[in-house]
């Protein structure tokens, strides 16, 4: 709180990164873009396929932005992020299918369960100073365990056969006759996520994460609890991913382990964040806008040769890491003004 007051002074040299650096054109631009996004499904007579691509973009933008919090801000590269998408999806779906509990409540339940699991796994991993690589390994293991368990307990989860969700048109059941509604729901989830990420970047907690990412030892010397910063980031990302997971299950009305929590989904999430620039609150969104249409195109081009699209993903990932490890928005880091705007 203290530094907020201090830095809000006009002459302050300690301006917090943010959109105010861009002035009114930025706000105008944002307003136009948001109105455009909102109007897209209704104003133009678009095929539902394109609405669907829009939904996928916002879905992955949400996940990429959430990953940016733990991977970009806090520098903890969670390779098993899809596990939390799966936890969210399966929690709400199983509650709905087995106990007839509304997926809206399931949404909250999935978020809480994700938070719990992230805390239980994250605490010891961070506590024992397992940094960087080991955290990544731990999250791979977590992702695979949850995948295997879901596949194995097929009496409850439907195993690899999956479970179709029962369809009862009822907004209270997260189900709508007009499928365009899903577009607006994911819009809300996405915009909230970006907003959280933006606010976080400007907050004390956000600075603590960045400090920890850069140098844990120096961060501790600044009075920052390294454990708390990492754990906060990990849990926050997990909770958002779970919410997106519930949404996705309701949207496609079918759930199996490989749709929501395969390693491939985790990779997609990372790729989205890395391509856009994982340190920026806009990175996940930019990455999704580019990558999702491309992936749709690749997948439909190579239908007779499955695997080609993911192999190309591999190539993109390698090339990106070799030549542009900071992603597209990372190119702005050298301009003080733009750096503030994109919140690098």
């Amino acid at each position: 709180m203290r530094n907020k007051k201090a830095t809000s002074e006009a002459s302050s040299i300690l301006t917090i990164p943010g959109l105010q650096s861009a002035g009114w054109p930025a706000f105008l631009g944002i307003a136009v873009i948001l109105i455009g996004i909102l109007a897209f499904p209704v104003a133009f007579d678009v095929r539902f396929y394109f609405v669907q691509v829009g939904i996928l973009i916002m879905f992955y933008a949400t996940l990429g932005t959430a990953w940016g919090i733990v991977g970009g801000y806090a520098g903890q590269h969670s390779i098993g992020q899809a596990a939390f998408v799966g936890i969210g999806a399966y929690t709400s779906t199983l509650l709905y299918m087995k106990l007839d509990i509304s997926p809206w409540i399931g949404l909250i339940a999935g978020m809480l369960l994700s938070a719990l699991i992230a805390a239980v796994i994250g605490y010891p991993l961070f506590r024992y100073g397992l940094k960087g690589d080991y955290f990544a390994l731990g999250t791979v293991a977590l992702g695979l365990i949850i995948f295997e368990i879901t596949t194995s307990f097929s009496t409850i989860t439907g195993g690899s056969q999956g479970i179709p969700l029962k369809y009862e048109e009822n907004p209270l059941n997260f189900q709508f006759p007009n499928r365009t509604v899903y577009y607006y729901i994911i819009f809300i989830i996405w915009i909230l996520t970006v907003f959280i990420s933006y606010k976080l970047r400007r907050s004390r907690a956000g600075f603590e994460m960045l400090a920890v990412r850069d140098d844990e030892i120096a961060a501790a010397r600044g009075g920052i609890s390294v454990l708390k910063a990492k754990l906060t980031a990990f849990i926050l990302a997990a909770v958002i991913s779970a919410a997106a997971g519930t949404f996705f299950a309701q949207f496609i009305l079918f759930l199996d382990p490989s749709t929501v929590m395969s390693l491939g989904i985790s990779v997609q999430i990372i790729l989205v964040a890395v391509l856009g620039g994982m340190n920026s609150y806009l990175g996940g969104t930019l990455g999704a806008i580019i990558l999702i249409p491309v992936s749709q195109l690749l997948a439909s081009t190579f239908t007779e040769r499955p695997g080609t699209d993911i192999a190309l993903y591999g190539v993109i990932l390698i090339v990106l890491m070799l030549f542009m490890p900071n992603g597209i928005l990372g190119l702005f880091r050298n301009s003080p003004k733009w750096r503030k705007i994109v919140g690098w």
Partner: peptide, 30 residues
């Protein structure tokens, strides 16, 4: 692939081997 990024952050190296894995595995599938 790895020697050029030794100076970069660890993520770069990690994600590169990850990319290699995707490429080989799905290349074989394709």
């Amino acid at each position: 692939l790895i020697n050029p990024v030794l100076k970069q952050e660890r993520t770069s190296q990690l994600l590169i081997t990850f990319g290699i894995s995707l490429l080989i595995q799905n290349g074989a599938l394709a």
